[in-house]
Design a protein around this nucleic acid. Structure first.
Length: 423
DNA sequence: TCTGGGGTCCTAGGACCC
DNA sequence: TCTGGGGTCCTAGGACCC
């Protein structure tokens, strides 16, 4: 029995989250910026109409913002993460066959609802989420994930669809593919778009009917799967439970470049702290630690970037041990005289914490370390993150490497002191 | 002056082994 | 002029996703 997928995708998610708690933003151009208020990463439809592109640097649209009264927000990940959970929980009430694909979208397997009117079901999902969580979503329904993506895209734009498009057994399937530019197909990025257009393949319909050999040759197995999916042959199934992570990266750009090793060490210690917490939350330990540094990638002169890989003697998720090795690695790649704009740490070779390969010459008290980390995590969960932290992250106020959020909204849903007040 | 962050998968090529 | 073959593992880089 062929499956049916629905893709539920939140519209302009971060902006929509801000609007839930600030209804005055309805109908106005609104954008949410990335860390350090760098780029526009979420835009309301009104902001899109003004020509504000995804990822555009804020300084390039300063005049546009001023002239049109665009409402600007720093990103508030605590809020978006919590709102995302509410959306997903609501979705889970519609079917247990759900795959959370990203912070703002989920695939549902609706195969067991085939005898119902799926379009109606889509509308019920949409209106329930709007009512319960306050977030507008679009729903695309089709025989494969790739087709559901296309359906969703059209559902979002078409006035007639009212946010829901069901392409199963639809006479409009060809039409839908024809009006979808090839670059908007899931899995087709800039490089493949260039190649396909050179071959005269401009829309999803032409891609679906393209020569298998041509696609296989240039786009490999992924391309082959892609065109099968467009033909209604499912190559990707629903991933019920999230697979364990293969790696964890924590990195940040600085608002202003940093020169001294000491400051970089503080930043690295802070990122290791975040990463190690993530590791422990996943019940994983890391066997390979990488540290990297880079100067401003948009400047031509005095460029430097380097990455150091350290194989750890014993896989670990202990913050202090990881800080120790990260600092060792950092010292080796630090060069005096450069203006550093970004540093980061990566944890790879993750394995479950109950499968640690011990080392004969290990001097670390693993038992004690585990208990200490547990206590540390419990306190920080209960009393707020970084209630307890390592001195290596520095004690001064206003550290220059700290990420800036000049126009952040309140943490309405995750902090008792920042609840919405109704006057 | 000011340009995000965190992932996955696939492939080609080199090292190494038998 | 002649210079194995095949398998595995690892890494770097490319391409894509949100």
């Amino acid at each position: 029995m062929p499956p049916v997928f629905a893709l539920v995708d939140c519209n302009n998610f971060y902006v929509s989250c801000e609007r839930v708690f600030n209804p005055k933003l309805a109908g106005k151009p609104v954008i949410v910026l990335s860390n350090n208020d760098g780029c526009a990463i979420s835009r309301s439809n009104e902001a899109k109409s003004l020509g504000i592109k995804m990822g555009v640097p804020a300084f390039q649209i300063r005049d546009l913002i001023k002239a049109n009264g665009v409402q600007v927000y720093s990103s508030n990940y605590a809020l978006y993460g919590d709102m995302s959970q509410r959306v997903m929980q609501t979705l889970a009430g519609f079917t247990p066959d759900i795959e959370i694909y990203s912070i703002d979208e989920a695939f549902l397997d609706l195969s067991r609802f085939k005898r119902y009117n799926l379009t109606d079901y889509g509308h019920r999902i949409k209106s329930t989420i709007k009512k319960w969580v306050g977030i507008p979503v679009s729903v695309g329904i089709a025989e494969t994930k790739t087709l559901a993506k296309i359906a969703n895209r059209i559902a979002k734009k078409s006035i007639k669809a009212e946010g829901v498009l069901n392409l199963t057994a639809s006479p409009y399937q060809n039409k839908a593919l024809e009006i979808t530019d090839v670059r908007d197909v899931w899995g087709v990025g800039p490089a493949y778009t260039r190649f396909l257009k050179e071959k005269g393949i401009r829309n999803a319909l032409q891609l679906r009917d393209a020569d298998d050999k041509l696609i296989k040759q240039r786009m490999g197995i992924v391309g082959t799967r892609l065109i099968h999916e467009l033909r209604g042959v499912p190559c990707y199934c629903l991933e019920h439970c999230p697979l364990p992570k293969k790696g964890i990266t924590v990195s940040r750009s600085f608002k202003h470049a940093i020169e001294t090793l000491n400051e970089l060490e503080e930043a690295v210690a802070a990122y290791v702290t975040i990463g190690a917490e993530k590791l422990r939350k996943e019940h994983s330990v890391s066997g390979v630690l990488m540290v990297f540094v880079m100067t401003n990638r948009f400047k031509r002169e005095n460029l430097y970037s380097n990455l150091n890989t350290l194989r750890l003697p014993v896989s670990t998720s202990d913050t202090s041990e990881l800080i120790y090795y990260a600092h060792l690695g950092l010292k080796e790649i630090y060069r005096k005289g450069y203006l550093y704009k970004k540093v980061g740490v990566m944890f790879n070779d993750l394995v479950p914490e109950n499968q640690i390969q011990s080392n004969l010459f290990d001097v670390w008290d693993r038992n004690r370390s585990m208990k200490l980390m547990k206590a540390l995590d419990n306190i920080n969960i209960k009393m707020g993150s970084s209630t307890l932290k390592y001195a290596a992250v520095g004690l001064r106020q206003n550290q220059r490497w700290k990420t800036m959020f000049d126009s952040r909204s309140q943490s309405y849903t995750t902090n008792w002191n920042q609840l919405l007040e109704v006057q």
